[in-house]
Computed example of a mutant assay.
Amino acid sequence: MNTVELFVGAGGLGMGVSRAGFKPIAVIECDKYSCDTIRDNRERGVDLVADWPLTEGDVREFDYSPLAGKIEMVTGGPPCQPFSIGGRHKAEADARDMFPEAVRAVRELQPKAFLFENVKGLTRSTFTSYFEYIRLQMMYPEITPQPDEEWSDHLTRLERYHTHGRPNELHYRVVTRVLNAANYGVPQRRERVFFVGFRADLDVEWAFPESTHSYNALLWDQVKEGNYWEHHEVPKRERWISERAKRRAEKLDEVPAHKPWRTVRDALVGLPDAETDPEAAEAFHNHKFQPGARTYVGHTGSPYDLPAKTLKAGVHGVPGGENMLLRHDGSVRYFTVRESARLQTFPDDFRFHGSWSETMRQLGNAVPVTLAEFLGRDIGDHIASCAANNDH
């Protein structure tokens, strides 16, 4: 099954769907450093990107016509900068917002499905109307904005089209949901909104897959049974659990059905500490100690025995200390790039190009590979099932 990968960045979403069985026919990214990362790994023969047909450039200039009719899925994380709902935002004319380009790809390629990801902030009440505008554009990609038409007027036309209904024309059945990556086996509490659409003529019945991991299961493992600590050979003096977590654990009456959330400690198994053992750390790509971490009010880092906080594209200025590790004794240090890659479930043989701050930006913008694979596999199964039914 073929895909077109838009706004690919360092490749987390694309690598995940490739692992799920899709083959990228076009991979598009404008950021030089991200492209250097992909090219470096491609030249080194890293499995998931070895055959990626990368285009470094503006997606607005990409010609999809040679690929029309050959694509099963379009994926990407369109950049969507803050904007004023009350201003003269003109949808496709606004250079800050790349959702119109995602819609153009769907319109011109007419894939069987698409998978788009964006920040949770897009679901805030402030952006309710624009969120609906994005969704309706994805549902009816052929209803394009008119010259000089403001997005709110285009939204009105889309609403009228939606309620009137023209089932024989190109349209997609679209569902959206905010997912926490920790609930799908990623060692990071990362919440993002996902848009998934299937072409309506396929008549696919689909819902977001049920979560596989939970906080309650981790608490059961840590507090009720203690297996977590024994597995990691953690001395009792270092087994830190908050009183609030203990109270929650005591209310659990039976073993949770889910797997435990994966923690920072789980993610870093096998990695030497780059601060205390820099020589051993040299055996791993991008695993170099970065000095300068410190705590202050509201800036405390990610506890060792919970999933990490959401990695962000900022570095020193990230307000919650998301890019720092918080040890049991209260000390902190920055995550190395390799550790951050583990938290985003990138494979260890994948090397990031650029300075520490630049590579952390790439990682902060990425979709966890494991989550992308999980969603991609489920979407792919439904596409394949639909094809098999049509064959009969």
Rank of each mutant, 00 (worst) to 15 (best):
F22C: 08
Y184W: 12
V318P: 04
D348K: 13
T123G: 05
T263P: 09
A388N: 09
R351Y: 10
W151A: 02
L13M: 15
G364Q: 02
N286Q: 07
A267N: 11
H328C: 09
Y33H: 12
V255C: 15
V337M: 13
N390Y: 10
G185N: 03
G270T: 04
L271K: 02
M73R: 04
G69A: 06
K32M: 10
G314I: 09
P66Y: 01
R351Q: 13
V315N: 13
P24G: 01
E56R: 08
E159S: 03
E243Q: 15
K236D: 10
E225A: 08
H213R: 07
R60A: 14
K251R: 14
T345L: 05
P187R: 09
S331D: 14
S152M: 12
N389S: 13
A207V: 13
P111S: 07
V337Y: 10
E132N: 07
T310Q: 05
A93T: 00
T370Q: 06
Y215S: 05
T276C: 02
L136G: 02
W206A: 11
V4H: 14
L109Q: 08
P66W: 02
P187K: 06
S34P: 10
C386S: 15
K120N: 00
V255K: 15
H164C: 10
A280N: 00
H231W: 06
L268C: 03
I379A: 12
E243M: 15
L306F: 05
N183S: 05
D305V: 00
Y130F: 11
E43T: 11
K246M: 12
E358A: 06
V103Q: 05
V369W: 04
D201G: 12
Y296E: 07
V196Y: 06
D153K: 11
R248A: 12
C30Q: 13
V318W: 08
H392C: 08
C80W: 01
D97Q: 14
Y130A: 01
L268E: 04
L326H: 13
H231R: 14
E230S: 08
R247K: 11
Y133D: 00
Q188R: 12
L136T: 04
A257P: 13
G364T: 08
V49F: 06
R262K: 14
A283C: 03
W229P: 03
T336I: 08
K259R: 12
L252V: 15
M138R: 01
M98P: 15
K259N: 14
M98R: 08
T336E: 06
E132P: 07
D221R: 05
R351A: 13
W261Y: 15
W240Q: 07
G317F: 07
A113Y: 03
P79R: 00
R124Y: 13
L363G: 01
T128Q: 08
G376W: 03
G86L: 12
T212Y: 13
H328E: 15
A283G: 00
A283S: 07
A91M: 04
